[in-house]
Design a protein around this nucleic acid. Structure first.
Lengths: 144, 144
DNA sequence: CAGCTAATTGACAATGATTGTGAACTAGCA
DNA sequence: TGCTAGTTCACAATCATTGTCAATTAGCTG
């Protein structure tokens, strides 16, 4: 546990927004200006490998890191990329028997996509013309 | 609808494995050797924007394209990246009332992660030493 | 304390997926 | 025939992430 690692760990836990590696980097640099982005990535990967944090790829362009260890799901804003934890349990969600195509399922991940409060408010304003040119470039067509 | 676009469309529908852009490129090149990867990307994006296909980012490193338009979910192999459609409906899966953090949810996506039949078989062979160095480099720690 | 070893750091370049740019081509039409 | 708009594609650029490897550091041994 080097100071760098501690700082990364703290930055992650101080945040509630599932920061990207870049965001963690910015935070950590405030108190440790010499740290490199490489070290942040390395530390995040190490922490994830140790099971201390989760690495999430939610289709927002870059990975996001989640200090929440318990089972939970996510609300993702398709407009700004914001990610919100959802501490709910969905007991009925399992692969129907006989439909598993031989998969050994080890993990179930539910992603609710939509617009967060802020982006929904913005979109109410200019709902006609520029509806697809919002803050964030990720406007993937359909996600089933 | 240019010949290129038709060919991309056909390649996608002829496949059941949710090909990556690169895979579509390889298929199309067989019958149209001069097509460029750029055109394939462009066409896939256009088709996705038109709602003809879905673009999926399932954390396997590259986007995968899915000609299946109906509502369905996915089985993803964490080892080889294979993606299998799952035509099941989960009626109970909605954000609990009062827990939506102001999100306007428009889409719900369930991903079951695990090992496909083939990768499970391989892993039965060398289950001790090289368990984390499999075909595919994506061994993200935990996905909640 | 000197010396050794192993782990960590960080500068730099490389990778892989994807997109921007802009010139060449093509189809349809006046 | 000449114009125009949409497509294609070669090339370079971008973005997130990782490889490499020398320099630094911590911790241990004697």
């Amino acid at each position: 546990m080097t100071p760098q690692r501690q700082s990364v760990f703290r930055a992650l836990h101080a945040s509630t927004v599932h920061p990207t590696a870049e965001a963690v980097y910015d935070t950590v640099r405030a108190e440790m200006p010499t740290i490199s982005l490489r070290t942040v990535y390395q530390t995040l990967n190490d922490l994830a490998a140790m099971g201390e944090i989760n690495a999430l790829d939610l289709g927002t362009g870059s990975a996001r890191f989640d200090p929440n260890n318990g089972p939970h799901h996510h609300l993702v804003c398709v407009s700004c990329g914001r990610v919100q934890d959802l501490a709910a349990d969905f007991p009925g969600v399992t692969v129907p028997v006989g439909n598993d195509f031989g998969f050994e399922v080890t993990d179930t991940e539910i992603v609710f996509r939509g617009r967060c409060r802020d982006c929904a408010a913005v979109n109410d304003d200019d709902r006609d013309a520029s509806a697809s040119r919002t803050t964030n470039p990720h406007e993937e067509a359909g996600r089933a």
